[in-house]
Amino acid sequence: MRKMQVQGVHHITLTGADRQSSIDFWEGVLGMPFVFDQPNLDNPDEGHLYFDPGDGRLITVFTNETRKRVHNRTPMDPGCVHHIAFNVSQATFRQTVERLNERGIGHSGPKDRGFMDSIYFKDPLGLLIELASYRFEPPAGSSHAAVLLEAHRIRVERGDYNIAEIHLADAIERIVERSTGTLSDSRGAADPY
């Protein structure tokens, strides 16, 4: 038996309300370009809208002009989607409260997650949306996931409860030491003063 190795998220498809509400939210609030449009090939009564969240992957939305917007929270039963998180820069993150407030969109306020900052709010159909901003950049040739894995290992070694910025900084240092050679006799910390 062998695995079917995935290489990233291809797309996520959500059930939306009407076409214009979907465009207004995904492009008009979150800034995702509306890049492709066709019928839902499995249901001729629905449209299928495609949005680019910024990394070239896709968020797609099934629309139906008879579905209306609701503001209740989507189900959180086992097997249901709890929320979807989208990456934003720190510059954008610092503007989220103001920009959500000017639209009258209720939100959680900024949340400190140790390795990232987050804010939560609902889409027009009650799906919880998170805007998240990492507090670090991975070393060249590495990824956020690789840094988080190394930071997790450091956190566990030290018996700490959750990942904090010190774990991230130490993880980045370890990754750089493993991936980049040096002509120095020692890679240890030094005091040149």
Rank of each mutant, 00 (worst) to 15 (best):
G141E: 07
R153L: 09
G159H: 15
Y161G: 10
P138K: 01
Y161D: 15
H152Q: 11
E150C: 13
A140E: 12
D112M: 10
K111I: 15
A145E: 12
L125T: 11
P110M: 07
R99W: 11
A146P: 04
E98I: 08
S142L: 00
L148A: 06
K111T: 13
P110S: 05
F121I: 07
G114E: 04
A151E: 00
G159C: 14
F121K: 01
Y134Q: 10
L125F: 05
R94K: 13
Y120E: 02
P138E: 03
I84W: 05
R158F: 12
V97C: 08
I163C: 01
F86I: 04
G104P: 13
F121A: 04
N87K: 09
L149T: 14
Q90D: 13
A145V: 09
L128K: 09
T96G: 03
E98Q: 11
H107Q: 08
G104I: 13
R153I: 06
V147H: 06
F115P: 01
H82T: 07
F136I: 02
R153P: 05
G114K: 03
R153F: 03
H144Q: 11
A151L: 00
G106T: 12
A85V: 06
L149A: 15
H83R: 04
L127I: 15
N87H: 12
G126R: 11
N162D: 14
R94S: 14
F93G: 00
F86G: 07
Q90M: 14
V88A: 00
H144L: 02
H152F: 01
S118V: 10
K111H: 12
S118A: 14
F115C: 02
I154K: 01
H83K: 06
I105K: 01
N101A: 14
S143A: 10
L127A: 11
K111R: 15
M116E: 08
D112N: 12
V156M: 08
F115A: 09
V147R: 02
N101L: 07
K111D: 08
R155S: 05
N87V: 04
S133V: 04
S108V: 09
I105S: 07
R158C: 10
G141M: 03
H107I: 06
R135Y: 03
A91D: 15
A151P: 03
F86T: 04
F93P: 00
A91K: 12
D123S: 06
Q90W: 04
L149V: 14
V97R: 05
L100A: 09
S143M: 02
M116W: 04
A140W: 03
D123H: 02
A85T: 10
M116R: 02
N87D: 14
G109L: 07
R153M: 07
A132Y: 09
F121S: 02
E150T: 13
N162A: 15
G104S: 10
Y120M: 06
A146N: 08
K122F: 13
Q90G: 09
Q95H: 07
Y134V: 05
S142W: 03
V81S: 08
S89V: 07
S142K: 06
R99L: 14
E98K: 10
A91P: 01
